[in-house]
Computed example of a mutant assay.
Amino acid sequence: MVTLAEVARHAGVSASTVSYVLSGKRSISRSTRERVEHSIEALGYHPNAGARALASSKSNIIALMMPLRTDMYVPVMMEIALAVTTTARAHGYDVLLLTGEEGPAAVRRVTGSGMADAMILMDVELDDERLPLLRESAMPAVLIGLPSDPAGLTCVDLDFAATGALCAEHLAGLGHREIAAIGEAPAVYERHTGFAERTLEGLRLKSRELGLRLLHRPSQGGYDAMTATLGRVFDERPGTSGFIVQNESAVEPLLGLLRRQGRAVPEDVSVVAICADQVALQASVQLTAVSIPAEQMGRQAVEHVVTKLAGQATDVVELIAPELTVRASSGLAPE
């Protein structure tokens, strides 16, 4: 790793001069500044967060609060976190990872300590206990998620209500009239997690509009849980011919159980998923699906944070329009 002293030797100046160029705390002649900047670029020097903090009284750190829960699909969370980290580094910021389970206590610790310049919150609930603290704080913050009241907040998320509606519309267009939604684990709905609640809201509204009979059943995922869930669905609605799955751990068990019951996909039953592309493409039947734009959400959240830190932003709600990709798992309803 290139050091500040090596930059100074390359530019033919003192280490303190390089420090002053980086911090802007003292006037440096244009020719000297250009020489130092040339050396920084030529050597690929990147000041660490601690050095920048000493120079600017800022930490140059963005705190990311992400969920590490057994009832959440971790790969998508990690993809968002990776996008946040790489985008933050491109802007010269490091990322401090906090677990969502810490809740309001973590928000108090960060906003009251100066350990970070801004926060990004994931796993947002409709009535999230962390939000009053953010509104009271002067710290720039962005949510990856949408609460029931986003006033005074900046939010980035997939439009999950439109996602649910789009899935219902797709099945209705294929002639399906009785559909079942296999949702996240019950605890996700008990917490009133925004993405799950909003998907269900969109599904219900569009189903009523199109005259569909909708049955929603949360599921832990896995074969045992899906065996019980699928049994309940067909007991209550024997004519169910379309499934919408918003639970990555339920996808393959559902497909396997349908095969064991002699129900062909998509000839007898259609399956539409809301999931990562990797899940849709690697399933035993490639899934018609709305992809979770994890990388885009993480990247745009950081861009909003950086704009806020520059004092140039107003609070906005940015909802990403869903895109449904038709693959092998959906077809015309059986006659």
Rank of each mutant, 00 (worst) to 15 (best):
V2N: 08
V2Y: 02
L4W: 00
A8T: 03
S23R: 01
G24E: 13
S31M: 08
S31Q: 15
R35A: 15
V36I: 12
V36P: 05
S39K: 05
I40D: 08
E41P: 00
A42T: 14
Y45F: 15
P47E: 09
N48P: 13
A55C: 08
I62H: 04
M66N: 02
T70G: 13
V76Q: 00
A81T: 02
L82E: 11
T87A: 07
H91P: 03
Y93V: 08
G100K: 10
E101L: 02
A105M: 07
S113E: 07
S113V: 05
S113M: 03
G114K: 12
A116F: 06
V124N: 10
D128V: 00
D128A: 04
L131R: 02
S137Q: 00
P140W: 11
L143T: 09
G145L: 04
P147L: 04
P150W: 07
C155I: 14
L158V: 04
A161T: 09
T163Q: 04
T163N: 00
A168D: 06
A168M: 14
E169Y: 10
A172D: 09
L174H: 09
H176G: 12
E184F: 09
G194W: 00
R198Q: 15
G202Q: 01
G202E: 07
R208T: 13
L212W: 03
D224F: 03
M226Q: 10
V233R: 04
F234T: 05
Q246Y: 06
S249P: 02
L255Q: 09
Q261A: 15
E267R: 15
V269S: 13
A276V: 00
L281V: 05
S291K: 00
I292M: 03
Q300L: 13
A313Q: 14
A313L: 12
T314D: 12
E318G: 03
A321M: 05
S330C: 15
